[in-house]
Amino acid sequence: MSMTSAQQSAWNAGVGGNAAPADLNLLILGCLFGCLLLFAAWSLLQAYRGVKNKTVRMDTLAETAIRLVLLILLSLFFYAH
């Protein structure tokens, strides 16, 4: 659904320039997936350190990896269409 001319002029007045709504959408999605990938890397690193120190079992590392892959795939499906 595209914006009407009144909505477009209100958007331009609100952002203070010629930024398109699609640019804001891209910025928000980029931040979301950047944070999500950083969280996935941190989680896998912590699980690996736990396996190395023998405080976490190896199957827990595999479960963590599977859950993170599923989380990323679902996020891509629901948000980046």
Results as ranks from 00 to 15, higher is better:
residue 1 M to C: 05
residue 1 M to T: 09
residue 1 M to L: 06
residue 2 S to N: 05
residue 3 M to E: 06
residue 3 M to H: 12
residue 4 T to L: 02
residue 6 A to T: 01
residue 7 Q to Y: 07
residue 8 Q to I: 04
residue 9 S to K: 11
residue 10 A to Q: 04
residue 13 A to W: 03
residue 15 V to W: 08
residue 16 G to A: 07
residue 17 G to P: 15
residue 18 N to F: 15
residue 18 N to E: 12
residue 18 N to M: 13
residue 19 A to W: 06
residue 20 A to H: 13
residue 21 P to R: 01
residue 22 A to C: 09
residue 24 L to S: 11
residue 24 L to W: 11
residue 24 L to K: 10
residue 25 N to F: 12
residue 27 L to I: 02
residue 27 L to R: 00
residue 28 I to D: 13
residue 28 I to K: 15
residue 29 L to C: 01
residue 29 L to T: 02
residue 29 L to A: 07
residue 30 G to V: 08
residue 30 G to E: 06
residue 35 C to F: 15
residue 36 L to Q: 01
residue 36 L to H: 05
residue 38 L to N: 08
residue 38 L to S: 11
residue 42 W to S: 10
residue 42 W to M: 10
residue 44 L to W: 01
residue 45 L to A: 07
residue 45 L to T: 03
residue 45 L to G: 04
residue 46 Q to N: 01
residue 47 A to R: 08
residue 53 N to M: 06
residue 54 K to F: 02
residue 54 K to T: 00
residue 55 T to H: 05
residue 56 V to E: 07
residue 59 D to E: 02
residue 60 T to E: 04
residue 60 T to I: 09
residue 61 L to I: 14
residue 62 A to W: 08
residue 62 A to T: 14
residue 62 A to E: 08
residue 65 A to G: 01
residue 65 A to I: 00
residue 65 A to S: 04
residue 66 I to L: 09
residue 67 R to M: 12
residue 68 L to E: 00
residue 68 L to R: 03
residue 68 L to V: 04
residue 69 V to Q: 04
residue 71 L to W: 08
residue 71 L to E: 07
residue 72 I to P: 01
residue 72 I to V: 13
residue 73 L to R: 01
residue 73 L to H: 09
residue 75 S to N: 10
residue 75 S to C: 13
residue 76 L to C: 12
residue 78 F to A: 15
residue 79 Y to L: 14
residue 79 Y to I: 09
residue 81 H to N: 14
